[in-house]
């Protein structure tokens, strides 16, 4: 929430700054590399799905979660150009995302598969 940083609007207060942010857009080359990384990570994800011993191991779920979180972050940072854009957008996205993730995790703790029962 932008509200967390009452003074932060000074960083994008003027037209000049906003335009400067526009100009720092990633290039063709970045886009291609990002696409390649996304492709490779997806291949790895599907590949490990077909290794029964790995699927049975404790590492399977954490590895998948980390890989998909990485893909998620890469798309958001580069394709949605959050890395280059005004900080305000970052706040508008990250704060709700954190609440959303917290909701999922706490619901799973409350009565999902990882429920804590005393």
């Amino acid at each position: 929430m932008a509200a967390d940083h009452p003074h932060s609007q000074t960083t994008y207060d003027t037209h000049g700054d906003a335009h400067a942010a526009e100009h720092k857009h990633p290039t063709w080359k970045t886009y291609k590399w990002v696409a390649l990384i996304l492709f490779v990570v997806t291949v790895v994800e599907v590949w490990i799905y077909y290794i029964p011993s790995f699927v049975a191991s404790r590492a399977f779920v954490p590895v998948l979660l980390v890989l998909s979180a990485a893909k998620f972050a890469i798309v958001v940072a580069f394709y949605m150009h959050l890395k280059y854009d005004a900080k305000l957008f970052r706040a508008l996205f990250v704060f709700p995302l954190l609440i959303g993730v917290a909701v999922i995790v706490s619901l799973l703790f409350l009565f999902g598969q990882i429920a804590v029962r005393a």
């Binding site: 929430m1 932008a2 509200a3 009452p6 003074h7 609007q9 000074t10 704060f95 709700p96 609440i99």
Partner: peptide, 21 residues
């Protein structure tokens, strides 16, 4: 600036985030 905003607008601002979330 945000810290010159009338307090009603401030509380409304927080409320809008609660609404959309």
């Amino acid at each position: 600036h945000f810290m010159r905003m009338p307090i009603f607008t401030w509380m409304s601002f927080v409320t809008q985030f609660l609404l959309v979330l």
